[in-house]
Design a protein around this nucleic acid. Structure first.
Length: 947
RNA sequence: GCCCGGAUGGCGGAACUGGUAUACGCGCACGACUUAAAAUCGUGUCCCGAAAGGGUUGUGGGUUCGAUUCCCACUCUGGGCACCA
């Protein structure tokens, strides 16, 4: 047999497949369809490194498998070529972006074709092709007509280096995601898409998607739904301030209001604010801060009171001050909050700094698990104190043992009417322990409500307890009452013993947590106190009633912001609108689409807030389509993400001049069944595309509510040094070199065998030899193959059918690494067999064909097959053949493996157990002991328990 | 801070619904072939131990006849969100 020459074989078959056109897809209602899609690449100037094709290899395998399994497969590829990187690259290399993109695409295609992918290139698309972006513009116009695209002058993120406005999604930690510059806030005219209109649907429809949980979670975080209430606070001079809160139950604790510095209230009430100069200064200062400065973690709170303005808390009619502070954001909720310092960390910090009142209105509630309330007993409400007395000499804490109840408690008792917690605590310490010289340290912020059964009084208690902390000055003790003495004894406990495990108090864990803190505030739910008629009720349950009582309304808010959709750059789709002097904004008539991106000498960004297009007089000045008067084109362009919002639809019908996609074709192919790409697109492409898709569904262009049914994230391939593969580090490995040295088939097998598909792993050129050896083994195996007279080999047959089952299931779940592993095992078994039947070998080749398409086709045709292996039918397995005649039973004694034996599959439980007990080895280990229990797991093991 | 993942030999990793932990591959060691080397093939390879045996899936506990798998606490690590009221 010939030497295995991968270059010759791979070239030959790639040519053959494309000549025969075996990857051309057509609608065929008789066959089930399968739409397998890669996230299309951005053809950058650097070309591919070995990490890029990983996902493409997976979809290639999957789609070949589907095709062999009788599916009609759509597996296309295209180019996402508008946007900043292409433009910046063009500026740098002083070429026109169009030329640069053309060159890069050619290079990418060449690299990809060497790996042997089965794309239907007849359906290739390119987002920068006017025939394509005509429809991107068309979708924008439909959105405009439905009021989903609107102009705004709000301040937006401006990247000073890229010289363009950006969407929220384009920021990474307050910096431009592309170039890392700190973004500024700039008010400027811009086009915005109302994605928030779809927030709720984008959130709820996530539920049914077969996507990685992490991506769904990212999207949920990004959409950021919170339910709360909008409540109006009147001011004394009868204007009003609307606030948004998720905790309306805490309104009785709202001791001041805070507005964002940009809040319109300030301008409108300038004259009433007595310290307006100071206020304006603060507002100006905030304006000049970047987002990063403003939101830095651990930053100290700042703010200014609006003097002369007093608001009224509608819950209790209290007069409260109004402040402005930059910790309140304009763009979320109503841009104003009610501050409840006792139950919100930020408000608490602010209140401490500016010495504003803090009022506790929610207390945590615990039901004493060791001593729960007893049904049917009467219930008594009490105000209690716990005295926490520390002896500074020993660091220990004063406690009391109650032998009769087996209790360990702090000195404790009720608070009498008019008595302060401190006085009550001193009294109890004196009565119960006799210590009289205590130095007051603090009252721990926040009470705790606890429900328990008071055994000694035979009643259920609801206790609101306050803890008071003292230091012992000296050990001088007063005489203790005899009756008290008889009940308990004084003891000292360690600090770490202050917990509910050791002590009787259900409150103990709260005291432990709050004791070392200077201040503590409780942000959880619980029971209301100091809340008028709502006191004593559960906070969660009265939320709505409280909102009603103050005339507010329940509302839902989202963190998701509308999508800033205009860019002041050249290389993007022109926004198809016209500004007419008389008629205002007029859409370009659909028959005039596409609005072609004109050629321009200088396409560098202007930095003026206008795109370079604004300088092209000839292009800009047009007649108004409506009144034929003077008008100008919109000169902003669309962001990079526009074209990728709907490209998966165009593949279904790439040449259609009359429609975005023919509804019949859409019905046949949609939705995408399997979508593969990087996790970095979680909160941009994958949210934007879902948004556009839902819009297209609403206007009847598509028939499904979601575009991508199943999603897999391809795990990164890192460089050999464990870092990201990048030109900067000089650790890039080019797939061309690997294909030349080892062959495409080896390259493909290696990348799939590296580890779980979705997991990142480091490239290791040494390891690739393992995959190469595997292919060579298959190559040599062909020599052993015999057409006739092969003795049946039961063991081989069993393994063969088990492998068909395993490989089929593994490809379906993208577990390529284990599929390859089982094929390796099968090939070893073939090698060990004295002879190999041609039909068995053919099955091995078919199972391997999606992974190593070239070498398997070569061997397949050398066995006399006329059609290529990829047009053959995927083998099926016979479940009866997977079952072998005997099973191996493992025998354990006390859970430790001591023996094993073979027995017929049909053996009954008793038979297996008896056999196990009679084994020599087992008898040795039993050593005369009588088995207490014998456990049998069918067909697997016997565990004999003797102790 | 909150929310998702992950942790298994020298390395990449495998293990079905709780049932023989370390499959498969890399590397390494030894052997065969060779004048020699490479390639190839074969054997071995979790740790301690001469052996018998014992131990081992990040750490500590728990449930179970039996735990990589389930529960609790913790450590490290990757990612998302974060002054979003």
């Amino acid at each position: 047999m010939k030497e295995y020459d991968h270059t010759e074989i791979e070239k030959k078959w790639q040519k053959h497949w494309s000549k025969k056109g075996i990857y051309t897809s057509k609608e065929n209602p008789k066959e089930p369809k399968s739409y397998v899609l890669d996230m299309f690449p951005y053809p950058s100037g650097e070309g591919l490194h070995v990490g890029h094709p990983k996902g493409y290899i997976a979809t290639d395998i999957y789609s070949r498998f589907k095709k062999m399994s009788g599916h009609n497969v759509l597996h296309p590829m295209g180019w996402d070529a508008f946007g900043l990187p292409a433009e910046n690259y063009a500026i740098k290399t002083k070429t026109h972006p169009r030329d640069a993109v053309g060159k890069n695409i050619a290079r990418y295609k060449e690299q990809l074709s060497g790996i042997g992918f089965n794309y239907d290139w007849k359906r290739e698309i390119n987002t920068t092709d006017p025939g394509y972006y005509k429809w991107t513009q068309w979708i924008f116009l439909q959105m405009y007509k439905k009021g989903l695209a609107f102009q705004s002058n709000d301040p937006i993120n401006w990247c000073p280096s890229c010289q363009t406005g950006l969407a929220n999604e384009d920021l990474d930690d307050g910096k431009c995601e592309r170039c890392g510059s700190v973004v500024e806030k700039r008010p400027m005219r811009q086009w915005v898409l109302r994605i928030t209109e779809y927030a709720d649907r984008l959130l709820t429809d996530l539920g049914n998607l077969n996507w990685p949980e992490s991506i769904k979670e990212s999207q949920r975080n990004w959409i950021g739904k919170s339910e709360g209430a909008e409540i109006s606070f009147k001011t004394k001079d009868s204007s009003e301030i609307r606030v948004f809160t998720t905790r309306p139950d805490t309104i009785f604790g709202a001791t001041y209001l805070v507005l964002s510095p940009e809040h319109e209230f300030i301008q409108k009430n300038e004259r009433k604010i007595s310290n307006i100069t100071e206020v304006i200064q603060y507002v100006e200062k905030t304006k000049n801060k970047t987002e990063i400065e403003r939101t830095a973690v651990g930053k100290e709170k700042t703010g200014v009171q609006l003097k002369g303005i007093t608001a009224i808390n509608p819950a209790n009619n209290e007069e409260i001050p109004v402040w402005i502070a930059d910790y309140v954001l304009t763009s979320y909720g109503t841009g104003a909050i009610m501050a409840v310092p006792a139950h919100d960390e930020r408000d608490f910090e602010f209140a401490k700094k500016f010495d504003l009142p803090i009022r506790e209105v929610v207390v945590p509630n615990i039901i004493d698990q060791r001593n729960p309330p007893v049904a049917g007993k009467k219930s008594v409400e009490r105000r209690n104190i716990h005295a926490i007395v520390r002896d500074p000499k020993t660091g220990k804490y004063l406690a009391i043992k109650w032998p009769k109840f087996n209790w360990i408690t702090f000195p404790m008792g009720g608070v009498e009417v008019g008595e302060s917690p401190e006085v009550a605590a001193r009294r109890e310490v004196l009565e119960e322990t006799g210590f009289k010289n205590l130095k007051f340290v603090k009252v721990i912020d926040g009470q705790v409500r606890a429900e328990y059964f008071a055994t000694h009084k035979d009643e259920n208690r609801v206790a609101y307890t306050t803890a008071v902390v003292f230091e012992l000055e000296n050990h001088e003790q007063a005489e203790i009452d005899e009756k008290e003495k008889a009940q308990h004894e004084v003891t000292w406990i360690e600090e770490k013993q202050i917990n509910y495990e050791y002590m009787t108090h259900a409150e103990a864990n709260f005291w432990r947590d709050r004791l070392p803190q200077k201040f503590s505030q409780y942000t959880g739910v619980g029971f209301l106190v100091n809340s008028g008629e709502f006191s004593g009720k559960e906070s969660e349950q009265v939320k709505k009633a409280i909102v009603d009582s103050v005339g507010g309304k329940m509302v839902t808010k989202y963190k998701l912001r509308d999508w800033v959709f205009s860019r002041q750059r050249y290389w993007g789709e022109p926004i198809p609108l016209i500004h007419c002097e008389k008629c205002g904004v007029v859409p370009v008539p659909e028959k005039d689409l596409p609005v072609k991106l004109p050629d321009v000498k200088n396409y560098a960004p202007t930095g003026t807030g206008e795109s370079p297009l604004a300088a092209i007089e000839k292009w800009v000045h047009v007649k108004c389509p409506t009144c034929k008067g003077k008008a100008k084109r919109e000169t902003n362009t669309m962001p990079q993400w526009a074209g990728s919002c709907w490209y998966y639809l165009r593949y279904m019908d790439p040449k259609n001049k009359k429609a975005l996609v023919d509804p019949k074709k859409e019905k046949y192919w949609a939705p995408v069944d399997v979508y593969v790409g990087g996790a970095e697109h979680a909160t941009r492409h994958l949210i934007y595309a879902r948004f556009w898709h839902k819009f297209l569904f609403d206007i009847g262009v598509v028939s499904t509510i979601e575009p991508f049914t199943r999603l897999y994230n391809v795990g990164l391939i890192l460089a050999e040094d464990g870092r990201k593969m990048s030109k900067r580090y000089g650790n890039v490995i080019n797939p061309d070199d690997i294909v030349a040295t080892y062959g495409a088939d080896t390259f493909r097998i290696y990348e799939m065998f590296m580890g779980p598909f979705t997991q990142a792993s480091a490239w290791d050129t040494k390891s690739i030899m393992g995959s190469r050896r595997f292919i060579e083994r298959i190559w040599r195996l062909a020599e052993k193959v015999k057409a006739e007279g092969v003795q049946p080999n039961k063991k081989l047959e069993t393994l063969l059918h088990a492998t068909i089952k395993k490989v089929s299931a593994d490809i379906e779940t993208f577990s390529f690494n284990t599929a390859v592993s089982s094929l390796m095992i099968l090939s070893r078994e073939f090698e060990d067999a004295s002879e190999v039947a041609v039909n068995d070998f053919k099955i091995l080749l078919q199972l391997l064909a999606p992974f190593a398409p070239h070498v398997t086709d070569e061997l397949w045709t050398s066995l006399g097959n006329k059609k290529t292996i990829h047009e053959s039918m995927w083998p099926t397995f016979d479940p009866a053949k997977i079952v072998s005649d005997t099973v191996k039973i493992v025998v354990q004694v006390n859970g430790k493996v001591r023996d094993e034996f073979e027995i017929g599959v049909s053996a009954e439980e008793n038979e297996v157990k008896e056999r196990a007990l009679s084994r020599e080895n087992v008898i040795k280990w039993l050593n005369g002991a009588v088995p207490k229990r014998v456990i049998y797991v069918k067909g697997k093991l016997v565990n004999i328990v003797i102790e």
